[in-house]
Design a protein around this nucleic acid. Sequence first.
DNA 1: TCTTGACAATTGGTTATACCAGTTTATTAA
DNA 2: TTAATAAACTGGTATAACCAATTGTCAAGA
Lengths: 239, 239
Amino acid sequence: MKTGLPGRILNDMRTDIIREVYPIGSRLPSERELSQKYDASRFAVREAIAVLAQGGFVETHPQSGTYVRDFFKFGSLDTLVQVLRVRRAIDRQTLESLLNFRHITETTAAAEAALRITEDESEHLSENLERKKSHLGDIAALSECDFDFHHTIIGISGNTISRLVFQSFKPIYSFFTDFFYSIKGVPEASLKLNVKLLAALTHHDAAASRRAMEDTLKFGEKKVYEAIKGGGSVILLDR
Amino acid sequence: MKTGLPGRILNDMRTDIIREVYPIGSRLPSERELSQKYDASRFAVREAIAVLAQGGFVETHPQSGTYVRDFFKFGSLDTLVQVLRVRRAIDRQTLESLLNFRHITETTAAAEAALRITEDESEHLSENLERKKSHLGDIAALSECDFDFHHTIIGISGNTISRLVFQSFKPIYSFFTDFFYSIKGVPEASLKLNVKLLAALTHHDAAASRRAMEDTLKFGEKKVYEAIKGGGSVILLDR
DNA sequence: TCTTGACAATTGGTTATACCAGTTTATTAA
DNA sequence: TTAATAAACTGGTATAACCAATTGTCAAGA
């Protein structure tokens, strides 16, 4: 993510906070102690702490110390993404929320996009699927195509908020798609559904686009739920 | 927002970036120049820049300089909120996106919340409306109640993502509600709609809850569109 | 005139040291 | 045991300095 010394300290400390090495409410070691631990100057540590504070992970109390905040309660969407990125695991409720959220926003976006799509945009999506078709074995490429495909459609729909929210998930998007596309037969089946969706969009058919997006997402949801069936309350996202 | 010297420098620089004093792609003054400008040490400036970089507003190139990023294109939802907070203005498309987004997510949330709401939660919402009723002239109090009311319902719905997204808007929520509740007759009418919504929720009637939420949001949208009718493409949010 | 090469200035990255003003803790005196 | 006091520690801030790499300048050479 971030490079440089303060960046590494930042990542390390954030990981420690998320992994509850420093539990919520606890006091972090003093800046001087941390600078010793990381064999760095106090300023490298201070930069890291400043970013953590901005991100809502800690709050500093002058002349007292730096304390871990309840970032789950007060955090933003970015916070959740960062937590998932470090944990590489997601609890069932959050996963369901995520799939449900996508369903709601993206079916609406597809219907709206059908009314607004231009030829250039249609062409872009077509190229995206061509690329997907020629990389059916390359999971990383498929993941990238998938993100771009959905991101583009939401962009065409014109809803800035939905687009930014979707964009916020980019850092962890591949956690899901890498898993998804590694299931036998999925790349082909997914491509077929995407093609159908693109056709509906190109024909400016809002209702059909909504249905096609619904089918696309439902297919993904089905595969995910099949895979985690009987699993615990926490689903690992490790590839 | 943030206090302390680096915090003030951060706010100032962020404002300059958003106001395009430093346009996208341009190079910021060197750290040494900035520290002179703010009559502060280089490290206060460095802390501010580190936070700006983390927020996606700038990127630093060692031995070259710090450059303004295209934060609209690559930013997250938080970025948009920060931009709106500084600009105190919103363009029509983003406003429509926002209202549309709320409509989609919150009507669904209301329906879901009807199926899950407990007596305690029902009680909390009831108290919220009592407070609203007894503060019909206090716009700040009404705004706070409004946020809590909707936030609570989304929370009851169980969708973590929707809740976090809604929470992300907290810093600018009052920009809209302060304006909304200052319209004659609105506090009373709004309260009536809220009461109806709460009744539907308490009766675990999902369909009625969805309709009631729809009515509540539509009322707000109507008032907003009436007010900005004929306005330019940018709507001021100044109270 | 145009290119090239060398050198100086500038930039962000990093460290060390120091002082301040409060807080916390330990110590001491009552 | 308690209260007053002093010492130690904390984050906030500033100054000075060095490094490595880039950029800009400008003179020498083609």
